[in-house]
Design a protein around this nucleic acid. Structure first.
Lengths: 337, 337
DNA sequence: CTGTTAGCGCGTTCAC
DNA sequence: GTGAACGCGCTAACAG
């Protein structure tokens, strides 16, 4: 730390006052061209860079946003972060991250640290087990806005960005119908997941509209593990009239289901067909991928969440806009084989 | 921001001085038990939380470490971040991230922002195209220590943590030898990559030790794209004596090579065998994965890098320890089929 | 044991 | 056009 230059140092060397230096550096109109250039030259020479921590402290603004999400290793979240970072960078914000690991205590711990650090805003994808949103209440006191994404709270009193499940599901089912399927099975996540209900509801709606009778035994639930998926798939296959196609909550579950089918000598993309959500980049490497995936655009979701957060941070403290509730449309992507 | 409590506020309400409050809050020994409890009680009541930005400013320490890496979406880097975050959290540090996207300008931009924010230390995995390390020189002036990991500079004047290529490669080749293979091909990355040379060198060493003659036409290079991999694989297959096994730079390249073989009616795990580096989590879903992967322990690499950084940050500015050059051993993992 | 004071680096009045 | 003075919240001498 041979000597980190400050405006004070520059002022001393030039024998002028710090306020003049400050103004010169900011191109203030009321500073003489001569002093201005002298100051700017010396600043460059010394490699002067303003000390952000001082500015943060003074401005009560850190130009930092915090992002809390379950696991960075999941492609979806990594993609979302990229979208957030992109927008943050454009607006000169830094990104602080924390992984809750689907653990509520960790979520709270990270939240507290971020609050104390006085981040200007927070973007959150809730831990799987977060039911209670009390820990987010303190943020209000500190004037820290929050935007939820993907794993969002049910109440729309909050700003949130999520996947448009009805639209995506509609697309998936329509796609399968066009391929001639009439008995379509579903493998949901756990029953408690909001998305499970949404998926099922949309499924029933579409069936109804097409005047097809609804058979609820075609709707299975799983705990997202390989074994749970196998059980769900087994229940579907053991029906008197098993489905000819299955819509699975995500690509991993679809792959597990496909493996289970294989063990039963039922061939994917021949005897049975799968469509799932997420569109993992690995699909291209699989010999037997799902027929199609519903791309959920994680980057877009992240970007949108960051966009809303920027608006909130810009808005005057006492006059926050009404909570926004954004849905991001999915898009069906067929996998070439 | 209904009213964020400060020590000043507490002092006023209790009609004592701010320094007494400060000390009481820090359990300073020279504060009377009575005042101490009074202060701590009111603090809790008011929901007082110290303003870190003020502390940062005062202490010239932000308890934040910056992490710069190419792409968060790559499993390796996501895993590394987790290791870093784990150690950082234990030491009460926050983690600021930035993705260079393998772009040097972005790397510099992020670095500058982190420096201005006065992070206490930085962990970097270099962008693919970074040849010149000049932009890291300024950090010295600010007393910000740096630790490189995975994509590290060649010079060992820097602190760095990287995969132990000789050890991992030795393991892979020995494994293939034990399976009876004598003609083992290599698919490296680009020739410029340090790892390509290391892999080749180790390969030759092992062959030599086993008294097998070295055939350099068995060593191919690719640009990591699907097409490049196909070309490399083609060159290996078109040899008079093609290899019976291939060591590939990473799982994706191995998968591309396997696909190419398939298109030529050469069956993976039967006519030819693959071993690659990384051990992607997807391997379990593949019908025809590489025979084995060398796990590179990204979390361990991240943790180690963070550990070294902690030491550097703790060390007095003027007495930094000699640069450490750590190698993390790999481990061969067989894939069940 | 506790209070007073100074100062971290910067931007921003308010004077001249 | 420029300088002096103040204050953000907190810690740390230095005094009592």
């Amino acid at each position: 730390m041979s000597k980190v230059p400050t405006i004070k140092e520059i002022a001393k060397q030039l024998k002028i006052s710090v306020s003049t230096v400050s103004r010169a550096l900011h191109d203030h109109p009321s500073i003489g061209l001569r002093t201005k250039t002298r100051v700017q030259e010396l600043a460059r020479e010394l490699g002067y860079e303003p000390n952000q921590t001082a500015i943060f402290f003074k401005q009560r603004k850190t130009f930092t946003i915090g992002v809390i999400l379950p696991y960075l290793i999941e492609d979806f979240f990594a993609g979302a972060i990229s979208g957030i970072e992109e927008l943050a960078m454009q607006h000169k914000y830094n990104v602080l991250i924390g992984q809750s690991q689907d653990n509520v205590e960790r979520e709270i711990e990270i939240l507290t640290a971020m609050k104390n650090q006085r981040v200007d805003g927070i973007i959150v994808s809730l831990s799987k087990h977060t039911k209670n949103l009390d820990h987010f209440a303190v943020l209000e006191k500190y004037g820290i806005p929050v935007v939820f994404f993907d794993r969002v709270p049910a109440s729309n009193a909050y700003n949130k960005v999520a996947f448009n499940m009805p639209q995506g599901t509609h697309q998936a089912i329509t796609f399968l119908m066009e391929k001639g399927h009439r008995r379509i099975g579903i493998i949901n996540g756990p029953k408690e997941m909001k998305s499970s209900k949404e998926r099922t509801d949309t499924y029933m709606e579409v069936m109804q509209k097409k005047r097809l009778k609804i058979d609820l035994s075609l709707v299975a639930y799983c705990d997202l593990t390989r074994e749970g998926t196998a059980e769900a798939m087994e229940s579907l296959l053991s029906l008197k009239q098993p489905p000819t196609a299955v819509l699975a909550i995500n690509d991993y579950v679809a792959l597990d289901a496909i493996q289970y089918c294989k063990s039963k000598k039922i061939k994917n993309n021949k005897d049975i067909f799968f469509v799932s959500y997420a569109n993992l980049p690995i699909s291209g490497y699989l010999e037997s991928p799902p027929m199609a995936s519903i791309e959920q655009y994680p980057g877009k979701q992240g970007r949108k969440a960051a966009e809303i957060l920027m608006q909130l941070m810009d808005a005057p403290e006492d006059q926050q806009p009404a909570p926004q509730n954004i849905l991001i449309d999915g898009e069906l992507v067929e996998h070439k084989r």
